[in-house]
Nucleic acid binder design. Sequence first.
DNA 1: CCCTTATTTCAATATTCGTTGAAATATGGA
DNA 2: TCCATATTTCAACGAATATTGAAATAAGGG
Lengths: 114, 114
Amino acid sequence: MEKTDAVSALGALAQDNRLDVFRLLVQAGPDGLSAGAVAEALGLAPNSLTFHFDRLRAAGLIAVRRDGRSMIYTAQYEQMNALLAFLTENCCGGVSCAPAAECKPARKRKSEIA
Amino acid sequence: MEKTDAVSALGALAQDNRLDVFRLLVQAGPDGLSAGAVAEALGLAPNSLTFHFDRLRAAGLIAVRRDGRSMIYTAQYEQMNALLAFLTENCCGGVSCAPAAECKPARKRKSEIA
DNA sequence: CCCTTATTTCAATATTCGTTGAAATATGGA
DNA sequence: TCCATATTTCAACGAATATTGAAATAAGGG
């Protein structure tokens, strides 16, 4: 990961509501959540939420797909892992001081109804 | 680490110059570097640098001590480790998905002349 | 005490950020 | 087609950010 991407990802996570959004999507697993579900879960205005989704998506931390009328947002675990790797690598003089932390979905979801 | 602290630390690192400053201090090890040394190494105006130091210090990522006319800034590895732990814990549904990454000084400096 | 060095403080400024309200777009169903 | 739902787009606004230049503070040396 480039420094530019790291700054972008750090900035995306450096805000209360966005950190909540990302954590919620991570917990939701690969199936993700609709924008409305996130809005309701966190009590955020939908237009404000779009703003935050954009920022997280620009940083590569989440992805979107359309499902009917809903937009489904999902966490991008690899980008988060890349960020953790970047931070770990860069905290000890260019040499990694510990095995890079890794982030995977909690467990496979049984395609439950959204 | 509380969410508030994580947001603060993420915000402190989410800026080009500050990320450079922190990486430089981490590489410098426990002895740290004077404000002037950092300013010269990164080509930053000293007053601008003070602003960034303040932000990193407010986030607990660096510490200061006075040495004669110089202010010596040092990386706070524990806070960085706490941040990595927070991110690792919170990326897999509240359950850590990997041993937390850890960050230690590269190696003991032989008290070389600053 | 004066002078130089090292760093911070302060005020000003342009930029970016986060939220709000109103309007627009997209999709599915009657 | 008309309507309701889901989400985005847009303009506006106050708040926070990052940088600059000038002045102030702190410490050491003559």
